[in-house]
């Protein structure tokens, strides 16, 4: 009997360790949590896709702590803003922040180190970017694809999804992460000395380069984009927006995109493909938005 008991105890211990997630307790609890509720609401059928996203990301998410993610995001933002000018209309920016920050609150990652912040870029290009940690940028050209607040919410929810799924961080080459973590984790160095700082700065610069190349030139994989669309549907539904805003916006974008253009035409799957991929979750629909919503969208973005 004794060996059997030992075996049983051992197996249970192992199972326990796995369950309680010694490797990544955060990911485990997040996955469990996202099955639960947001503001007491059942998440329903959409939860599965979000959960898939979260678990797939657990590994990359562990590499950098929230503060490092924040500093990477700031510099990605500063690089984008050296390339694109911020759009100066305070009212328009406030409105985009209200919609975006409200959506972020209903994501699986409502809190980040520095919080979510949104900014309109003064460009006719159809584009949007999500830097790590929650800095989100959207061009005037992209806003012109949005017929109303539902469509705007859809674009922003897609970007929040990229933040939540940590997609930008995945663009960093594995070797850089390993090297950075070796320096960061080095027991001998209590405070980063000059040499370490400059080594870290080089890795930092290369990492920013990786992200910018992916974000601006190559785009994420189709899989990550479709996943971000699915996560966006979850976020929209929880927040109370009709998720049909997403295919609606994509249909409008399809009309406006110039084939071969250096914007979403280059970095994202064709809008039509995204609509097809979304078909079971959200359909293109004529959405009659409540008058108050129509009015505030027009007041803030009517002249965009």
């Amino acid at each position: 009997m004794k060996p059997r008991i030992l075996f049983a105890v051992g197996a249970l211990l192992l199972a326990g360790l796995t369950l309680f997630g010694c490797n990544n307790p955060d990911a485990v609890s997040r996955v469990l949590g996202s099955f639960g509720s947001v503001g007491g609401a059942p998440v329903g059928d959409y939860a599965a896709s979000a959960v898939k996203g979260v678990s797939a990301v657990a590994h990359a998410a562990e590499d950098f702590n929230p503060e490092q993610e924040y500093y990477i995001g700031r510099t990605v933002g500063a690089s984008l803003l050296a390339k694109y000018k911020p759009y100066g209309d305070a009212r328009a920016n406030a409105y985009v922040n209200e919609v975006g920050q409200a959506l972020a609150m209903f994501s699986d990652m409502p809190q980040t180190f520095g919080g979510y912040h949104f900014l309109i870029l003064d460009s006719a290009e159809i584009n949007a970017f999500a830097a790590p940690g929650g800095l989100v940028f959207i061009t005037r050209g992209m806003l012109r694809c949005c017929a109303g607040e539902n469509a705007l919410a859809a674009v922003l929810a897609h970007e929040v999804a990229h933040v939540q799924n940590k997609d930008a961080l995945r663009a960093i080459k594995r070797a850089r992460t390993t090297e950075a973590l070796a320096i960061i984790g080095g027991e001998a160095v209590k405070h980063a000395a000059g040499a370490e700082v400059s080594r870290l700065t080089n890795i930092f610069a290369d990492s920013i380069g990786d992200i910018m190349t992916t974000m601006v030139n190559n785009g994420y994989s189709r899989t990550l984009e479709y996943q971000a669309d699915k996560t966006a549907v979850t976020i929209l539904t929880r927040t109370g927006y009709n998720p049909a805003g997403l295919p609606d916006m994509l249909a409008e974008m399809q009309k406006k995109l110039t084939p071969g253009g250096a914007d979403f035409a280059k970095t994202h799957p064709a809008p039509g493909d995204r609509i097809t991929e979304l078909a079971s979750l959200a359909r293109v629909a004529e959405i009659a938005e409540p008058p108050a919503r129509v009015a505030r969208f027009k007041a803030a973005l009517g002249n965009i």
Partner: peptide, 28 residues
Amino acid sequence: KGFSAEVEADYRKSHGGNYAAVDAMERV
């Protein structure tokens, strides 16, 4: 340790970037 304010400052010296706009963005 790690990517911190110190590394950001070091990076800014050599690469620049519009950090003022990022700071303004974070205030919203």
